[in-house]
C-alpha cells in the first residue's frame, strides 16, 4: 500500500497553548481515515497543518509528490453574494478545469437546480454540498473533509455520506474529522481518537471497540421484553441453548462498546462535549 501523507511528531502551539502534541501517523492510499474527537481537540488545526495552511511549530508532514489534494473545511469559505455557479467557476478557472466539470458535479450532488442561487440563501446542507463540489473540481488523490456533516439534518448528512462513499469507491483517499461516532463507524476504515491534542487510540473501528470489550458478555432480549446478560462462556452457551429450545429469545446482541464509549473510557470525556 502506498502512503500519501506521513505526519511525524507534529506539535503545534497557539501562543503558549499546546494544541497538538507529537502526532504521528500515515495515510494510506485508498483508505478512509477518520479523526475523531470533541470540539477543541485540535482536529481542524491538524487538518490545516496536513493541507499546508498552517506550518506546525515542530514535527514534519511529508506529502507524496504529484498528490492532488481537495479540501472541504468546516467553515465553508464560499462567497455568499455570488451564485453557486460563480463560486465554483472561480475554482474551475483556478484549476484550469472546463465548465462541464461544474455541471457534472452539480448533477452528482443534486444541486443543479440551485446553480443560480446566491450561496447566502442556501441551507447549511446545501452549502456543504457546494463546498464538496468545490473540493472535487479537480481530480484529487486525497480528499480532506473537516466535519463534513456537522450540524446537518439526517437527510442532508446522509447525502454527504453517500457522496463520500462514492468517492471511496472511486479510489479516492479520504481523511475526515468528525465528532460523530456513527459517521466514523459508517465511513472509516480506520479512526484516530484525538483528545487534548494527542492521539489516544488508532486503528480499525471494530478492532478498537473489541480491544475495550472488557465485559465479554452477550445481551439477550427475551419475549416479553426482558433483557438478560450472559457471560461469553460454556455456562452462557448452555443457558442460551436452553432459551433457544424454549423459543423464548427475541434478539441477541454483542456488548462491545461503541467508539463513544471507548472515547469516554480512554479520556473520561464525551465526544459531544464542548
Amino acid at each position: 500500500m502506498k502512503t500519501w501523507i506521513e505526519a511525524r511528531d507534529v506539535t503545534h502551539f497557539f501562543g503558549q497553548k499546546k494544541v497538538l502534541n507529537q502526532i504521528s501517523f500515515q495515510i494510506e492510499k485508498g483508505s478512509v481515515t477518520g479523526l475523531l474527537g470533541p470540539s477543541g481537540a485540535g482536529k481542524t488545526t491538524l487538518i490545516s497543518i496536513l493541507t499546508g495552511q498552517i506550518v506546525p511549530s515542530a514535527g514534519t508532514v511529508k506529502t507524496q509528490e504529484r498528490c492532488a489534494v481537495g479540501i472541504m473545511m468546516d467553515s465553508f469559505g464560499l462567497y455568499e453574494r455570488l451564485s453557486v455557479w460563480d463560486n465554483l467557476k472561480i475554482y474551475a478557472d483556478l484549476y484550469r478545469v472546463p465548465s462541464g466539470k461544474i455541471r457534472e458535479l452539480l448533477v452528482k450532488t443534486g444541486m443543479e437546480t440551485e446553480k443560480k442561487t446566491p450561496v447566502g440563501k442556501l441551507s447549511k446542507g446545501m452549502r456543504n454540498r457546494v463546498s464538496f463540489c468545490r473540493a472535487l473540481l479537480k481530480d484529487v488523490d486525497i480528499l480532506f473533509l473537516d466535519e463534513p456533516a456537522s450540524g446537518l439534518d439526517p437527510a442532508s448528512a446522509g447525502k454527504i455520506h453517500e457522496l463520500i462513499l462514492q468517492e471511496k469507491q472511486a479510489g479516492t483517499t479520504v481523511f475526515l474529522t468528525t465528532h460523530n461516532m456513527h459517521e466514523a463507524e459508517t465511513l472509516c476504515d480506520e479512526v484516530m481518537l484525538l483528545n487534548a491534542g494527542k492521539i489516544v487510540e488508532h486503528g480499525e473501528p471494530g478492532e478498537i471497540c473489541m480491544k475495550y470489550n472488557t465485559e465479554n458478555k452477550i445481551e439477550v432480549v427475551l419475549k416479553g421484553g426482558e433483557a438478560r446478560m450472559l457471560p461469553n462462556s460454556s455456562r452462557g452457551a448452555w443457558q442460551l441453548s436452553e432459551w433457544m429450545r424454549e423459543e423464548r429469545i427475541l434478539s441477541i446482541h454483542s456488548t462491545e462498546p461503541d467508539l463513544e464509549e471507548v472515547f469516554l473510557t480512554v479520556t473520561g470525556r464525551r465526544l459531544t462535549e464542548e
Binding site: G77, L78, E80
Partner: peptide, 11 residues
C-alpha cells in the same frame, strides 16, 4: 469568512 484561506489552498 475564510474565503481567503480556501483561495490560497487553490495555489
Amino acid at each position: 469568512k475564510n474565503t481567503l484561506r480556501v483561495l490560497l489552498t487553490a495555489h
